[in-house]
Nucleic acid binder design. Structure first.
Length: 437
RNA sequence: GGAGAGAUGGCUGAGUGGUCGAUAGCGCCUGACUUGAAAUCAGGUAAACCCGAAAGGGUUUCGUGGGUUCGAAUCCCACUCUCUCCGCCA
């Protein structure tokens, strides 16, 4: 899991990271438990050693000798049981606590409490009114979607509840077009595409560091019985991103150095409960329970420079898609308070959305160093023969329907029609516009 | 969903209560022979963690989790996965 040697060497760095990431975990508490655990481990191992030694002699013993040995062993066995139970108890606590120890943000990451303190690092394109509009009669995507009969919110709510929707007719084609365009873009760049399982187990959710902590954001199928590990039903979770499945793909494996970096992308439906967001972004396609996403996932050697190089690469891939769609956007450095537990560096891309009269988050690019790899157990054999944990990164390449917001709104025309972005037309039978009727 | 078979080291495959981390073969490494290679022969060859400067020592691991036992790869229970047959099905 966490690099314990590193943690023991410089606990203050982790303490600071926890503070910056607004975690309540006290590293000192963990270290105290860690020390306690090591003492018990030592004790238990000594007892086991003694047991093993005697046990090996047992077959050669006879008569009185054997009887005495049996008596001793019985006694030792009883004492061991209670110590082993104590160890098991502490081990569980220790492991859960360890899962909450953060990755240390890079020095350049701005310190801040939440997304309001993210720092803009560049702006591409100029925020503007929709391209085909001269009047101020600008419609938002909800109105456009309704009038063009390509998005249906009321019926989505009827069938599944709030934050669900139907895409319909050209709305479906537009979504598939933008996904296919993006996927092709990545495949051309040498990415291997995955259509992963949409359900994942606890290990995958934990390994990618969504669990523990994010349980209430995931739809669960089946219930895990505490402790026994037995399952009530299926014990699976609907993934919130294909990253969960794709990053876990090589879980427990040792990779060949020559195969690194691995450039993977996943296309999948994504499911999020969005608990705790009541009343936030309730209108439209911005925050919905189910969406589709093309996600980039990178596994690379344990090298900071290589990781940063790839971070920029996958950030660039996403920017290229937005540029091809001719949508204005900006890139921000995400501050410490808005980062996930394991992330060491993170950029968001925010795309201009006229209805919000502002930028809205559409992409999220994260570097994890070995944080996920340690949880997932993904190693590689370095040139010198030693085994190291890989570094992982991921970034959205496109997420729909959220990206349909700027597309519909920026490409709307005076007559209420929507022009289809040129790069998407080949994926829609050269259709140029979405019109009423 | 029903019936059955199985899961052991990089691979194949032995092992049904004790000196078994585990026979054997393949593969791989080292050495000998050879101008070189092949073949042959000899030796070696799992991982994680802990203690140690090192040499070395210890613990754990035979699908996973429980249990029985002084002692479990081996016996019992549950689960997971794979394969075969039947049923159902996009």
């Amino acid at each position: 899991m966490i690099d314990l040697n590193d943690l023991r060497t410089r606990p203050e760095a982790y303490e600071e990271a926890a503070k910056k990431k607004r975690s309540h975990l006290k590293i000192a508490d963990f270290l105290k438990l860690d020390t306690e655990r090591r003492e018990i481990v030592k004790l238990v191992e000594e007892m086991r050693g003694k047991k093993n030694t005697t046990s090996k002699q047992m077959p050669s013993l006879k008569g009185k000798e054997k009887e005495e040995a049996l008596k001793d062993m019985k006694e030792l066995s009883d004492r061991m049981k209670s110590e082993e139970d104590r160890l098991k108890e502490i081990d569980e606590k220790w492991a859960m606590m360890q899962l909450r120890i953060p990755g240390i943000p890079l020095a350049q990451v701005p310190v801040g409490k939440d997304d309001s303190e993210n720092v803009e690092i560049r702006k591409v394109g100029t925020p503007s009114s929709p391209l085909g509009m001269t009047s101020g009669n600008i419609k938002d995507h909800v109105t456009l979607g309704e009038e063009l009969d390509i998005i249906d919110f009321p019926r989505g709510a009827k069938v599944a509840g709030s934050r669900f929707y139907f895409l319909k007719g050209d709305g479906v084609s537009l979504e598939l077009a933008v996904l296919q365009f993006t996927l092709d873009h990545l495949i051309k760049k040498g990415f291997t595409a995955f259509a992963p399982p949409l359900l994942a187990n606890w290990d995958a959710m934990m390994g990618t560091s969504y669990f523990p902590g994010g349980e209430e954001q995931a739809y669960a199928v089946g219930v895990r019985k505490e402790k026994t590990g037995a399952v009530e039903a299926d014990d699976l979770y609907l993934i919130g991103t294909s990253e969960v499945a794709v990053a876990s793909y090589h879980g427990g494996e040792t990779l060949k150095f020559a195969d690194l970096p691995m450039r993977y992308c996943g296309i999948s439906n994504c499911f999020r409960r969005e608990a705790g967001t009541y009343g936030k972004d309730t209108r439209g396609l911005y925050r919905v329970h189910q969406f589709q996403k093309v996600e980039q996932v990178i596994l690379c050697e344990a090298d900071a420079d290589m990781s940063m190089k790839l971070h920029k690469e996958i950030l660039g891939n996403a920017e290229e898609v937005l540029q091809a769609l001719k949508l204005p956007y900006r890139v921000v450095d995400v501050c410490t308070g808005d980062m996930g537990l394991g992330q060491v560096y993170k950029n968001d891309i925010e795309t201009w959305m006229p209805s919000r009269n502002g930028y809205g988050e559409t992409h999220s690019c994260s570097s994890f160093y070995d944080f996920q790899a340690r949880r997932l157990g993904i190693k590689y054999e370095a040139a010198d023969g030693t085994k190291k944990f890989v570094y992982t990164l991921n970034n959205t390449c496109i997420a729909s329907p959220r990206i349909l917001i700027p597309i519909l709104e920026m490409y709307q025309n005076e007559d209420g029609s929507v022009t289809i972005p040129e790069v998407l037309r080949p994926y829609m039978g050269d259709q140029k516009k979405i019109v009423k009727g």
